[in-house]
Design a protein around this nucleic acid. Structure first.
Length: 473
DNA sequence: TGAAATGTTGGGGCG
DNA sequence: ACGCCCCAACATTTC
């Protein structure tokens, strides 16, 4: 009986896992491995919140494997060094994994594959993360898409690829390589700022599946309307499960298909396609995590300012909905998408901070931090990416607040100092007369900050900055 | 998945 | 009855 190393990365599940199934289909015993390789990722090693999630997702995977009689081998180090070592230590004849699409991983994987083959091992990679490979989708002219709608059209109909069942019983190998304890990977924060995350999330595959079922049963029908209201639990909240591969997109698509068809379902499926589009763009334009896709934005006159950046990060800009969003992010590792668009617009346009500043903060704070989606989202906000919001499209933080959190439920949940501010002034608390400020215990400049910049001024300044790069296209 | 400025229309008050 | 003005409501354009 031969042994295969199955290398887990962002496919932390046993079902619908092509690499694992390959081992089973070939009748191999399985050595399941997770390698913690922060050094490979350069600036894009998992951030604090993502590491917290990873820790628990690995713990969950460990348990699932245990039930199948297998021990997950945990190691640290670079793949090019450790994977061949692990293969040798376990006497494996084959190494199987599922593809990741971050630029550095693409480079490492292809080198690893040829080195393993040279050493006489079978090396094989499958697709656990996407409905379609980024290179399979192309325009008539054979070029990558830069606009979402035609990309989405090209992705119709929904592929009927069903999730794969486990292709047999897992068998333990004769030799197990030595591994480390999960705690030794140091994924959990040293100072315990993670209570908010733990209260908001259950980072297990079972919880992800339950959430998917619940969402499709109760929320999907009205998704197209409810998803814009941050106070309502109207979105799927599946992003972290999808990022870590505790859920796969095939499983989600299959569940959507089975749920029938409604406007809400279609618009939810559209979001799954946005995720695919993000990977498509990242694959074809691998410098976009750092550089704007539209070259004219290279010389954009940002006005970097640490004070403004910190006010934004800490949710102390003086605009209630912006601040509520930033605090939700910090406390729960997640932010409602409507609010993500607003805080993105605000940072880039009103505050003239580079979009990469926001991209980096989200990377550190989000449990669903995903290089492809985060990059696409921030270039969208910056107006410099594929199918981006045009630069002159500037969200009004007051109007958005009145429109999408009119009752202030979301704002009051995350900005408690505004608790007693009446609805009439909640969206622009700086207009409260002094007397009212006293009465509701919210003095502007004391308990809650004055706006860091007046909306009209921020808007005018952003438009003026845009003028400077306008002709240079 | 924008907002503001500008343009158009039509009802109603009023001299 | 008529013209004039105001303004809300809606449409278009501009940023």
């Amino acid at each position: 009986m031969q042994t295969a190393l199955v290398w887990f990365r962002q496919d932390l599940r046993l079902e619908d896992n092509p690499a694992l199934n390959r081992a089973l289909a070939n009748g191999h015993a399985v050595v399941p491995v997770y390698l913690w390789s922060p050094g490979e990722a350069g600036d894009w090693a998992a951030g604090g919140a993502a590491k917290w999630w990873l820790h628990h997702a690995l713990e969950d995977l460990q348990k699932q494997l245990k039930q199948e009689g297998l021990d997950l081998v945990l190691r640290q180090g670079d793949a090019l060094e450790e994977i061949p070592k692990l293969a040798a230590e376990s006497g494996a004849a084959a190494v199987y994994w599922n593809r990741c699409y971050e630029p550095w991983r693409m480079r490492i994987d292809s080198r690893l594959k040829s080195e393993l083959k040279e050493a006489g091992l079978e090396a094989w990679s499958g697709n656990a993360s996407l409905l379609r490979e980024p290179w399979e989708v192309a325009t008539q002219a054979g070029k990558p898409y830069k606009v979402f709608s035609p990309f989405a059209r090209r992705c119709q109909p929904m592929p009927d690829a069903a999730p794969e069942d486990l292709a047999g019983r897992l068998r333990a190998p004769e030799k197990m390589p030595a591994g480390q304890e999960l705690e030794e990977l140091g994924l959990l924060p040293k100072i315990r700022w993670d209570e908010g995350l733990a209260a908001a999330w259950e980072p297990t595959r079972k919880a992800g599946q339950a959430r998917l079922r619940q969402f499709l049963r109760h929320r999907a029908k009205n998704y197209d309307r409810q998803r814009n209201l941050p106070a309502v639990d109207g979105t799927s909240r599946l992003s972290p499960y999808l990022h870590w591969g505790q859920l796969g997109p095939r499983e989600v698509a299959a569940a959507v298909r089975e749920s029938g068809s409604s406007k809400g379902l279609r618009s939810f499926y559209n979001e799954i396609i946005w995720r695919e589009f993000a990977y498509h763009v990242l694959y074809h334009f691998p410098t976009t995590p750092e550089s704007p896709l539209q070259p004219k934005f290279r010389d954009f006159p940002w006005e970097k300012d640490d004070k403004l950046r910190q006010a934004w990060q800490q949710g102390r800009t003086g605009y209630p909905l912006v601040d509520a969003g930033m605090r939700q992010l910090y406390e729960t590792g997640w932010m409602h998408n409507r609010v993500r668009m607003l805080v993105g617009s605000f940072l880039v346009k009103h505050l003239l901070q580079p979009w990469q500043t926001g991209e980096r903060w989200f990377w550190d704070c989000l449990v669903d931090a995903d290089l492809a989606s985060n990059t696409l989202g921030w270039q969208w906000a910056g107006g410099c990416g594929a199918d981006a919001a045009p630069y002159f499209r500037i969200f009004n933080p007051i109007t958005q607040s009145e429109k999408f959190d009119g009752g202030g439920e979301y704002i009051r949940r995350f900005v408690p100092e505004l608790e007693k501010v009446p609805d009439s002034h909640l969206h622009k608390p700086w207009t409260m007369p002094p007397r009212m400020q006293e009465e509701c215990g919210c003095r502007i400049g004391q308990e809650y900050p004055a706006p860091v910049i007046a909306h009209e001024d921020g808007r005018a300044r952003a438009l003026a900055a845009f003028e400077k790069i306008k002709e240079a296209s």
